[in-house]
Design a protein around this nucleic acid. Structure first.
Lengths: 379, 379
DNA sequence: CGGTTGCTTGACATCGATGACAACGCGGTT
DNA sequence: AACCGCGTTGTCATCGATGTCAAGCAACCG
């Protein structure tokens, strides 16, 4: 077992003090070229590598950022993680990831604490817990950026897509293609994301004066399988929907195979979240695309800036989304259901919301961006 | 900014020494119930949380494992990461991930070193570099488990699928369905995985006395797009293949959409690596399925055992794979090409290799498992 | 009742690096 | 020649926890 090489070993070989070695290692200018060379030679000879744990203890902070997501097996979070990792790496920071698992939102606080005791410099959290107030204390020491979901009970930096506007756009897209019975398929309602997308769905219906038919709203599916079952039930109803807005990827991964399996590819579908192969199916699946890489990078950048200025007011960053028409969302309702037909058929992207939006949240109140931005979607 | 609470603060409040607080925190039995209670009270009052960085410095090792993969955006590695993270979490270990990116295998050593200086307790590495000998020195201090690819130039623990046997099985499957002109689609040949799968392909052909036609081997595609282009070229040849063995997911994600786009779904396809939606396409895609979760967990378990016994001989663990027939791999060659037709049509899994194989590598030589196991696949 | 055992508890050094501050050497000034 | 200033280098303490070892104390024994 080779011995560990420390600063002092190098110092001894180079016949200088440990402090001087430290200076060389850290690129301090106050070292004469000759000593510097001697030290560097000794470092090379011994293969010295500084112990970042010791440095972290001394300087009181690590160069590690913590990332808490629901599941790394979920492609959305995987790509988000990938982007965070890349951005961090560019700044010389490492990333510790922890996944909460969709079973137990209450595990979130345990996971977060396990990162905090490891003295991470900052945290990026995709909150599962209904209320993130428990993080308020921690957030005073360790900056936290929330992603994907707006945290409740805490004012902090956040990076989000405008779920309400996106939900509204998806629904309006189906309305524009003549559908009047549009179902909403979603996961747990305790998830704020689902709630906002549902609110967008309802807003779009209301804008056309359509009733909000509770029998068309199927929420609670925790897995793709359950989502498929929920969809099956919807279609088996007495007045089945002619179109379905699937409000997240998990739902879509349940819904789409079901439709194909049952030969019901006549049902129009818009999926929130793009997914692999969505464009190879027949018909290809129309999606709301929001790029997890963009979200991840934005969150990382936000965190970096926060690390440089701990006292700036909290900011909420909204990242762009767009609707990608591919076929499934442009299917007409069956004859007898058709009522009107709008344009927007051949445009590659119905709307590309190139918002570079940055909102400044007030000191004292939670930042909110639901109302102002949901409006813009109107086309 | 709230002050940092340390052991000594707790000690002062509880009127004991720092050491005693340390004992309570670490569950040391040699503390009387009454002092223990007093200390616990003080800990609770102050909200003390131990500083793991300081502890790590003192005990000389962190409770973090490092994971190096090609790309977290790749679902295979994402799921592998997820499994590693879960297994680690169960042991109270954190995970630092770093992705190398497929552009620059030479970055691998930089990434590995950035984890080593952070004093990770162990490493799990999916090697990109052609030669991993540079890790030999590091591996003496920090245990390393290689996954997915057999490292070259170093003897170490490894967790792998038997790529050669799997490549052979995929090819034989196509042969069994009457194909005689079978193409091989793969990424860079410097990747040992690709090389082994190609070797399996050739072995299967040779076993039937078929020539190894170089014009049917398309390798080098670095992206899905390139794989699609390569496939297009194959099909445009004068004697095009009637079947294609796509040797990894990236290739499949290029190949399959291309075939659908060109209306060439008559070409038989077996894909190495399952991918989302593979079973919803028409025809559904026959795949060699090897579970990244199983690999990840196996690698983590291997690492844990290694951490407990640093001197045991290196082990190579082979994880099971299976061929999942779904349609695309069972397509017959077009009339005039048909020669024979075998059975094995309706069995759900052609073979489920429930190997729980553990190989013990000799001390002095690289562990190899290519020859013994490739044989078993014969059916 | 002295000595021994056994348990609880504390003093101190230590892990490896770095911040604060001082000493030192050298050249230039008056 | 004594002094000053400046840049290089070293000494020492420190970050927060834990291993070592010994002191302190009670019970128990002969």
């Amino acid at each position: 077992m080779p011995e560990r090489v420390t600063l002092r070993d190098v110092a001894r070989i180079a016949a200088v003090s440990a402090k001087t070695v430290s200076r060389v290692v850290n690129g301090d200018a106050h070292v004469t070229p000759s000593t510097r060379a001697r030290v560097q030679q000794a470092i090379a000879d011994l293969g010295f590598q500084p112990n970042l744990v010791a440095r972290s203890l001394r300087v009181g902070r690590t160069d590690v950022v913590g990332l808490v997501v629901e599941s790394l097996a979920d492609p959305f979070f995987a790509r988000l993680t990938s982007a965070v990792e890349q951005a961090a790496h560019e700044r010389g920071l490492a990333v510790m990831v922890s996944s909460v698992g969709n079973r137990a939102p209450e595990r979130e606080s345990v996971i977060v604490e396990s990162l905090l005791v490891r003295q991470v410099a900052g945290l990026i959290v995709a909150p599962m817990a209904q209320n993130s107030a428990y993080l308020a204390g921690a957030g005073r020491r360790t900056p936290i950026v929330f992603v994907d979901r707006l945290p409740e009970g805490i004012v902090s930096d956040a990076v989000l897509v405008d779920d309400l506007a996106a939900g509204e756009m998806a629904t309006r897209h189906l309305l524009d293609h003549g559908h009047r019975r549009i179902a909403f398929l979603g996961s747990e309602l305790r998830n704020p994301t689902t709630r906002l997308r549902l609110a967008g769905y309802r807003r779009a219906l209301a804008a056309r004066g359509l009733p909000d038919d509770g029998s068309l709203v199927a929420v609670g599916a925790g897995s793709a399988r359950e989502a498929g079952a929920a969809a099956e039930e919807l279609l088996a109803g007495s007045r089945p929907p002619t179109a379905i807005f699937s409000s997240n990827m998990r739902c879509s991964l349940g819904l789409v195979p079901l439709l194909h399996g049952r030969g019901r590819t006549d049902v129009a579908v818009v999926s929130f979240d793009d997914f692999p192969m969505a464009d190879s199916l027949v018909p290809a699946v129309t999606v709301i695309d929001h790029d997890p890489e963009v979200i991840g990078r934005a969150a990382a950048e936000r965190l970096f800036r926060r690390l440089e200025d701990l006292d700036a007011p909290a900011q909420t960053v909204l990242v762009p989304f767009r609707l990608v028409p591919r076929g499934s969302g442009e299917l007409p309702p069956p004859a007898g259901h058709v009522q009107t037909r709008h344009q927007a058929q051949d445009r590659r992207f119905e709307q590309d919301r190139e918002q570079d939006m940055v909102h400044h949240a007030g000191e004292g109140r939670a930042s909110t961006m639901t109302s102002p931005h949901a409006q813009e979607g109107a086309r």
